Simulated assay, not measured.
Amino acid sequence: MTPSAAGRALKLAGVVVLAALMLCACAHSSDSRTHDALLEIPVPKTVTVTTSKVAGLGKILADSHGRTLYMFPPDAGGRVTCTGPCAGTWPPLVIASGNKPTSAAGVNPLDLGTLADPNTGASVVTYGGYPLYRYAGDLAAGTANGQGLYLNGGPWYALNPDMQPVTTPPGK
């Protein structure tokens, strides 16, 4: 590579890095209390936790779209430990701060709560004190592709309405 070509390549790399930094700054400048910082979608003011039957797992908690909700044992003690890239794979079930989640039939409303979400500044919906998450690999309602996966420092389990993690492998 000639010295002038190397200089142009270096300048181009600098421009790419600068553009990436500017995009990151813009993404973080949005109102994190009204948008999911990772997905840039509005944080809902209402959330309903319901149940769904998944083959091999039985009756488990689901969001209002029928997507499986998971718990992460390292969150014991009522804290959200899945942040940053982890939350991209396991998006927490969030609700706008100051709002309360609702329950459908089969879900005990007394077991629902919220915790501050370090990812968005909103609130994460909890059940029995455990933050609830979805799995990015669950592309359709009634699937549980995240069941039993060991990622981000621990296993991920669907949660049944009795606040028990379902440790059965999927499809068994």
Rank of each mutant, 00 (worst) to 15 (best):
T50S: 12
L23F: 12
G128P: 09
Y157A: 02
P91T: 03
A37Y: 05
L38A: 08
V80F: 02
Y130M: 15
D111Q: 12
P169H: 04
Y157K: 00
H35Q: 11
S29I: 07
L149A: 04
V94N: 03
M22S: 15
K45Q: 10
G148S: 06
A116M: 02
V17F: 07
D31A: 00
D63I: 02
K172H: 09
T51M: 12
T114H: 02
I41F: 11
L110W: 14
P169L: 04
T51V: 13
N99W: 14
L139P: 08
L38K: 04
V47T: 06
F72Q: 01
M1N: 07
V124H: 01
A55K: 10
G154M: 00
G78M: 08
A27H: 15
P161Q: 00
D75M: 02
G106T: 06
Q147W: 03
A140Y: 13
A158M: 00
R79S: 11
A13S: 10
L21I: 14
P74K: 01
D36H: 11
G121A: 04
L110M: 11
T89N: 09
A9R: 04
L151F: 12
G84H: 06
L18C: 13
L110P: 06
T2G: 10
P169T: 06
L57N: 02
A27F: 06
A140Q: 15
V166R: 00
